[in-house]
Amino acid sequence: MPGKAAEMLETTRSELAPDPNVNPLVPLVAGGRASLETLAALALEQHRVIPADRRAFLHLAQRASGDPAAAGFFTMLAEGEELAAERLGAFTEACGVDAGRMQAYDPLPGCQAYPAYISWLALNAAPADAVLAITANFATWGTYCAAIAQGLRTRYGFTDEACAFFDFFAEPAPALDEQAEAAVQAGLDSGRLDERRVYTYGRLLQAYEEMFWSALS
């Protein structure tokens, strides 16, 4: 029988799961109807999101130094962002983006609201609360990445290397899930986890996730 932490994680994911029809862009990519220009913008925005999120997760890990479970969770997230960054270049190249275009790109405010809020959480949220909110959002992100990877292969003819960035986030991460559960349980045991705040953080994070895709579309 699942423990309290596992139940809370599942409930939070379920309650914060977006309407399947709310994302305007992922279905276009999955169906091959998004332009290469839009895919290029997705790549360029991710070149800003990934390093920003990595630094935010490292800061959360540092703030959670007295909570080994939460610190381990955020360290794993930061390491994952580093691995994702290594895979992003092939997708960027497949979209026809060179170094000059990347340097000249002006990011969209709607896309950068998400990493800005992750940074806000890194500075202001209790690490135990941030674990739960971010885990709920990652479930949504992983689903989107799986659909994009399939669309890039079947509709655009992108290679496995070019799809590796999205494959990485689409794959199950049982070790990360276990670390998240341990962190949430530690927060519950210590009384540091506030369910009302978690829901607010998660709701805002999902809203900024939706804003990211709407801005691109």
Rank of each mutant, 00 (worst) to 15 (best):
P27I: 00
A182H: 14
V198W: 06
P68V: 07
T200C: 13
A90N: 04
D167W: 02
P2A: 07
L205V: 05
I148V: 15
Q62F: 03
A186R: 11
Y117R: 02
A90Q: 03
L123N: 10
E82V: 01
R203C: 06
A99M: 06
L9T: 15
G31C: 01
N137V: 00
A40S: 13
E171N: 12
E15D: 14
P2C: 11
G157T: 09
G187R: 03
G110Q: 02
F73E: 14
A34Q: 02
G89K: 01
A146W: 04
G66P: 03
L108N: 10
A30G: 01
G157K: 11
W120S: 06
S119H: 10
P107Y: 11
L83R: 14
D67W: 02
K4E: 11
T75Y: 12
G157E: 08
Q185R: 11
G32W: 09
G157N: 12
A186I: 02
F74R: 08
Y105D: 07
E209S: 09
F138M: 12
A175F: 06
S35P: 06
S217A: 12
P51R: 07
F57T: 07
A164N: 03
A52N: 04
P18S: 13
P2K: 07
Q112C: 00
P172D: 13
P172S: 10
S190W: 04
L9K: 12
A40F: 03
C111S: 13
M102K: 15
D19H: 03
